[in-house]
Every structure is written in C-alpha cells, then in structure tokens.
Amino acid sequence: MRKTTLVTLLAAALVVAVPGVADARPPSSSAPLTQSKPQAEPPHRHETLIEVSVLHATRDKKGKDSRIGEMPELNDAPFSSYDSYELLARNKLTLVKGGRRKLPLPNGRLLEARLEDVLPDTSVRLFASINRPGAADFLPLLEVRARRGQSFIVAGQSYKRGILVLVFKVLR
C-alpha cells in the first residue's frame, strides 16, 4: 500500500515539476490560478500598531519600575549608567499609512510618528520626529525599518536631572 502511494505521489510530482509535462497541461487547468483576481489585501497591510514607552532615567538609586517589564537593553551601557528607571507613559499608537500621530512628551516636546510604508516582507518603515513647537528642530527625521516585535530606542533628551528614554516597539 505504501509502495502504491509512493508511486502515485511520485507520478504527481513529475506531472507538476517536470518542465515539459507541466507545460503540456491544458491552458484551462492553470488559468484559474494565473488569472485569478488577487485577493483584497488584509486591513493591516496599510496600518501598524506601535507602542511607545516613555522612561525617565535618573541616578536616584530607585531601581527599575516594575511596570517597565522585561527590557534587557537597560542593563547594557550606556543605559546601565543610570540606576533608576521610571515608566512615565506607555502609549499604543495605530499608524495608518500616510497618517501622522502626535504624542506630547513630558519635557514639552512633541513626538510625531508616521507610517511611511508596509513592505512586502511585512516590515514597516516608520518616520519619527521630535520637536518643540516654535523652537529649532531637535530630531527632524528618524527613519526606521522594523518588523513585528522589534524595538528601537531614542534616548538622550534632558528631563528633571535625568534623561528620557523612548522605547518604540512594533506590535503589529
């Protein structure tokens, strides 16, 4: 029985894979596949969901805020030079392709995020900027390519005897 199955499957493989045999098939047999109307792209193809965590790093010897969760990057230099990390805000932003979302930061600056593109490999190209209204640009443009689950960090803005650490994570 197994030998019979094997022979049948091998025959099927030859029909599909051998160039001559495959080309000899009637056009109508492949027409539905090659000419089929492309399926509508799923809704998330034009949007993405990112999480922005705003951390305050200081040297106040308070340790790490438990709400921050697992973030091993903070154990590495230069983040390890701060002994206190507090979660000031955590926001989920749904970004639609071409649209912009703004997020006020504790230091008065404004974070603006934009979904520039969703690439064929499901990664997204994000644009971010950090500016203070009416002031010189602080971070005019940051272009990042990331996939679901990946993070990137923007750090260094001064705030209350410490710095702000913005952790961006692509959720979807």
Partner: peptide, 28 residues
C-alpha cells in the same frame, strides 16, 4: 530594527545597538 536615515539637526546623534537583539539606539 534598522535605522535607515537620521537627521538630527543641530544635535549630535550617536547610533549604536544594545542587547541580544541588537536593538538600535539613537542617542541625542
């Protein structure tokens, strides 16, 4: 993730990676 372009204006920007996932960091 990959930092593909950065315009830091008048600020000095340093780009590096940290952690086992090589998370990119822009330090301004």
């Amino acid at each position: 993730a990959a930092i593909e372009r950065i315009e830091s204006g008048a600020q000095h920007a340093t780009v590096f990676v940290v952690g086992r996932n090589a998370t990119p960091v822009v330090w301004l």
